[in-house]
Amino acid sequence: MNPDELQTLRFADPRLSRFDPLPRIITLDDFDRGFCGWTQLVGNYEHTLDAMLPGYAQHSAAMLSSASAWEFGSHGGFDGTYSLKLATKPKKGGQNVAIKRLTFRKRGPIRLEFYFTFKPEASELRLGEAEIRSVGFLYDLQSGDADADSLRVMPHMRFLNALDGVHEQKWQFKRRTMALKPLGNEGKTFTHYHLSPNDWEDLPGGHQRLCYNEIPTKINWHYARFDFDLASWQATRFQCNDRVFDLSGYEPIVIPGMRNLWCMLNLAFFVETDTDKRAFMYVDGVCLSGDF
């Protein structure tokens, strides 16, 4: 089938026509079909859960949400009733992460597309537009065991909505992380808190004002697309709604490969709160595609 015929077929299917996938669709997650393999990111440990770093210990289970509001009822998802919801605890700096764990079969271009929105818990009758610190996404990737390189590569991107009450509204990335910390005494398990508040850098030209709406309960869905090449470990395109951002200054975190993560292809979404109020990120419709 030539590319034009494939595109025509995909445009005929409403589930696909809202995406621009590469030839092979790896996952197409619609949360009216359940959790689709998305689960909470649990921190590493050995012998005791007390070994888990505090940043990970705070994570809790993602939910299937109807995005219901106290004063007008259920908002529903982008399509159908349910979306995937991540919620922080009500503590400034609190964070939560949902993850999907795959492996890849070819080191080539992949494309992540998703629809997302975010709001703080509507516990006050005020807008709260600067109460969510950030929402974002990341990949956690590693070379194949027979590859010439042996690298763990972690592209991160977040929309820094607010920091210490300042309404920042800009995209940021990370190329550095803390040193690996060994856990337990068996020499098999390590941890590093790559979502710490440190080391975020502004994406050049990355300011963007998103549709937040006018009261704390109304949500609008945003489209995001992130292209990454597993062969060169380089990001090649980032788009949110109508804006395409220059990635010439973007770099992922790169650290040495680890003993048991070969061909890893993990995707994650995360949310952070900037106040002592729960922050919510909703995701509905995730399409991961590849050129193979």
């Binding site: 359940g34 959790f35 909470q40 649990v42 859960l49 007390d50 888990m52 210990a57 809790s60 289970a61 939910m63 299937l64 949400s65 109807s66 219901s68 009733t81 349910y82 919801k85 919620a87 605890k89 729960r278």
Partner: peptide
Amino acid sequence: SHSAIVARNEPWSGSVATEPYEVGW
């Protein structure tokens, strides 16, 4: 069907509650 861990290794004393969890489905 789904298993949701809503509190993991959480210290409890005094008045406590788990975080809200959506179960409408």
